[in-house]
Simulated scan of single mutants.
Amino acid sequence: MIDRIRRGLPLVIHGDGTSLWTLTHNSDFAKGFVGLLGHPEAIGEAIHIFITAFSPPETADGLIGDQAISSVFDNSKIKRYVPDFQATVPFSEGVKQSVAWFETHPDQCTVDSEWSVLLDTLIEKHGIEAKPLSFYS
């Protein structure tokens, strides 16, 4: 995605583009996760802070498809077990940190050319006028 943004290529947003998304920066995730470790009341509880990266494909597909509609998540359960849990990293800062990390680890940077071709094909087939993103510098 970053490669497409840097090259001024459009992205495809699924759904009608108005759905709300919930994203949690890895450092915020870590605070909640560490707070749950060894917490006796949290044993056996399902807490929805985990995302599709750790899900089997059959589960991840449903979660990804679910993102096409707005979802608002309630984090009161994790706050019961980890009262100090609070997400503090705004999306814009999290993205900057992630891009900076990849720039210092070029061996971890990959571009999925098949995915990029798929996006170009979707844009072309739907006759959407591509409007390049200009917010990334």
Results as ranks from 00 to 15, higher is better:
residue 1 M to P: 07
residue 3 D to K: 01
residue 3 D to W: 03
residue 3 D to F: 01
residue 4 R to M: 06
residue 4 R to D: 04
residue 5 I to H: 08
residue 6 R to C: 05
residue 6 R to I: 05
residue 6 R to P: 03
residue 7 R to W: 07
residue 8 G to I: 10
residue 9 L to Y: 09
residue 11 L to E: 10
residue 12 V to E: 06
residue 13 I to K: 06
residue 15 G to I: 04
residue 16 D to P: 03
residue 16 D to R: 09
residue 17 G to W: 00
residue 19 S to L: 02
residue 19 S to T: 05
residue 19 S to N: 10
residue 20 L to R: 13
residue 20 L to Y: 12
residue 22 T to F: 08
residue 22 T to I: 05
residue 24 T to N: 05
residue 24 T to P: 03
residue 25 H to I: 07
residue 25 H to N: 14
residue 25 H to A: 15
residue 25 H to T: 10
residue 26 N to F: 14
residue 27 S to R: 11
residue 28 D to T: 11
residue 28 D to K: 11
residue 28 D to S: 11
residue 29 F to Q: 11
residue 29 F to C: 04
residue 29 F to K: 13
residue 31 K to W: 00
residue 31 K to F: 00
residue 36 L to E: 03
residue 37 L to H: 03
residue 37 L to E: 06
residue 39 H to R: 11
residue 40 P to A: 09
residue 41 E to M: 08
residue 42 A to S: 07
residue 46 A to G: 06
residue 47 I to F: 02
residue 48 H to F: 10
residue 50 F to Q: 11
residue 51 I to L: 11
residue 51 I to K: 13
residue 54 F to R: 10
residue 55 S to I: 00
residue 56 P to D: 15
residue 57 P to K: 08
residue 58 E to P: 02
residue 58 E to N: 11
residue 59 T to E: 12
residue 60 A to R: 07
residue 61 D to M: 15
residue 61 D to Q: 14
residue 62 G to C: 05
residue 62 G to P: 02
residue 63 L to W: 12
residue 64 I to A: 09
residue 64 I to F: 05
residue 65 G to L: 07
residue 67 Q to S: 13
residue 68 A to S: 05
residue 68 A to K: 09
residue 68 A to E: 07
residue 69 I to H: 11
residue 69 I to Y: 13
residue 69 I to S: 12
residue 70 S to L: 09
residue 72 V to H: 07
residue 73 F to C: 04
residue 73 F to H: 11
residue 73 F to D: 08
residue 76 S to C: 05
residue 77 K to E: 05
residue 77 K to R: 13
residue 77 K to G: 02
residue 78 I to H: 02
residue 78 I to E: 01
residue 79 K to R: 14
residue 82 V to D: 01
residue 82 V to K: 02
residue 83 P to S: 05
residue 83 P to Y: 05
residue 85 F to S: 01
residue 86 Q to R: 10
residue 86 Q to C: 03
residue 87 A to K: 06
residue 88 T to H: 07
residue 89 V to W: 10
residue 90 P to H: 06
residue 91 F to M: 12
residue 91 F to W: 13
residue 92 S to M: 09
residue 93 E to A: 10
residue 93 E to F: 00
residue 94 G to S: 04
residue 95 V to W: 08
residue 97 Q to V: 00
residue 98 S to V: 11
residue 99 V to L: 07
residue 100 A to I: 04
residue 100 A to N: 04
residue 102 F to E: 00
residue 103 E to A: 00
residue 104 T to W: 00
residue 105 H to Q: 01
residue 106 P to Y: 00
residue 106 P to K: 02
residue 106 P to R: 01
residue 109 C to I: 08
residue 109 C to K: 08
residue 110 T to W: 02
residue 112 D to H: 03
residue 115 W to A: 14
residue 115 W to V: 07
residue 115 W to H: 12
residue 117 V to K: 15
residue 117 V to W: 06
residue 118 L to P: 00
residue 118 L to V: 06
residue 118 L to E: 14
residue 120 D to P: 01
residue 121 T to F: 08
residue 123 I to E: 01
residue 124 E to Q: 10
residue 125 K to D: 15
residue 127 G to M: 06
residue 127 G to S: 09
residue 127 G to W: 09
residue 127 G to D: 10
residue 128 I to C: 03
residue 128 I to W: 14
residue 129 E to A: 13
residue 130 A to Q: 10
residue 130 A to G: 15
residue 131 K to E: 15
residue 131 K to V: 15
residue 131 K to S: 14
residue 131 K to H: 15
residue 132 P to W: 15
residue 133 L to P: 15
residue 134 S to W: 01
residue 134 S to V: 09
residue 136 Y to T: 04
